[in-house]
Computed example of a mutant assay.
Amino acid sequence: MSSSNLRVALIGSTGYTALEVARLLLTHPRADLVVATSRHDEGKPLSEIHPMLAGRCDVLLQPLDASEIAKAADVAMCCLPHGASAESVRELAEAGMRVIDFSADFRLSSVETYEHWYGVKHPWPERIGNVIYGMPEFFADEIKTADIVANPGCYPTSAIMPLAPLVQSGLIETNDIIVDSKSGVSGAGRSPKLGTLYCETNESIAAYAVGTHRHAPEMMDLVERISGTPIELMFTPHLTPMDRGILSTIYVKPSAKAGSVDAAVDSMMSLLRDTYSDAPYVHVVDHLPATKHVAGTNHVQMTVRHSGNRVVIVCAIDNLTKGASGAAVQNMNVMFGFPETDGLLV
């Protein structure tokens, strides 16, 4: 640990995303984890909650006291659930800290949309619509000076990244988009639930939240925010018997501008390659991406194929890394002027 390094506070430290943040910070050359909080495990070392950290992280868990944390740390990674997170983010920001929020509390543009989909009254509604979305591939300039960054959702990352440039270019029909996504069980969090028990998920795959998943409005909101064009989409998530990873298969129709399906595939591959030519973690590939290709990394792989009169886009990410904690470290690097790849060279 260097006395000159950026000091990081981890707010809500018992979940999988918190473990992933701690793991990534162990190898970060310019940042150190100095504070970790928990409401129920105060006084315990973080390594007792996450044995993977044994011998490598001796931070003791403490209660969330924003004024005290602001004295000890420069930036907070807030890994609390929606609703509860906004209150803590507000306290930390008002104490003078810069905050990266993992919840959905500041991702959407509309208070009404948030309260409809999340079923709670937003505790800081005046900030809805003016918090920067944490996708440096599109918002790096704004992230550099942001006081609060809304870390993207995992499923939305796998859909927004391929869709936004294609919608912006006018190459696809915007009213007929189907997003079919499969996620590892870690996406459901660490708290025990019947549907994520081993006997329920092993040797099985199941759709859930059909037509009601909260990430659908985030996908539509951000694609419109980036492209300037509203879209309509159908999103169906599935739980698969693997620890981590997301594979999204996205079905679109080429627009008249795109020409034939074969021509559209070539144009879309070329456009995506141009869009992400300078993005260190986004790779437009010729092979069909798989979750194994990106597991444990901050990388994104995507490609385009044709099938009948539709174009099929396949995108793979790691839900805990590029879908959560890796994106947060990438955002932190941009916020503080570090190389974007610090702590993420995996």
Rank of each mutant, 00 (worst) to 15 (best):
M1V: 03
S2E: 15
S3R: 14
R7G: 13
T14K: 09
A18D: 07
A18E: 05
E20K: 13
E20I: 07
R23E: 07
P29K: 10
D32C: 08
L33A: 08
V34E: 08
V35D: 04
G43N: 05
K44N: 10
L46Y: 04
L46T: 05
C57P: 00
L61C: 10
A66G: 13
A66H: 10
D74K: 04
A86N: 10
A93T: 12
E94N: 13
G96V: 00
M97E: 02
V99Q: 01
D101N: 12
S103N: 04
F106A: 01
V111C: 02
T113C: 11
T113F: 04
T113K: 12
Y114W: 09
Y114I: 11
E115S: 06
H122S: 09
E126P: 08
I128P: 05
I132P: 06
G134N: 02
P136H: 03
I143N: 02
A146Q: 06
A146C: 10
D147H: 13
N151R: 07
N151E: 12
P152Q: 02
G153S: 01
C154L: 09
C154D: 12
P156F: 04
L163C: 05
L166Y: 01
S169C: 08
L171M: 04
I172V: 15
E173L: 09
T174F: 06
N175G: 11
V179T: 03
S181D: 04
S181V: 12
S183T: 15
S183H: 12
G184S: 10
V185F: 07
G187S: 09
G187K: 06
G187M: 10
S191W: 11
Y198P: 00
T201S: 08
N202W: 07
I205H: 08
Y208P: 12
A209R: 14
T212Y: 09
H213Q: 07
R214N: 13
H215D: 15
M219N: 03
M219C: 12
D221Q: 12
D221S: 14
L222W: 14
R225D: 06
T229D: 00
I231A: 00
F235M: 11
F235G: 00
P237H: 04
R244F: 06
G245W: 01
V261G: 01
V261T: 09
D262W: 09
A263Y: 03
V265L: 07
D266L: 14
M268V: 06
L271S: 04
D274E: 15
T275Y: 10
Y276A: 00
Y276K: 04
D278C: 06
P280I: 07
Y281N: 13
V284Q: 14
V285D: 10
H293C: 10
N298E: 15
N298L: 13
N298K: 11
V300Y: 12
Q301T: 13
M302L: 15
T303K: 08
C315P: 08
A316H: 03
A316F: 04
V329T: 00
Q330R: 14
F336I: 00
T341D: 14
G343M: 00
G343H: 02
L344N: 10
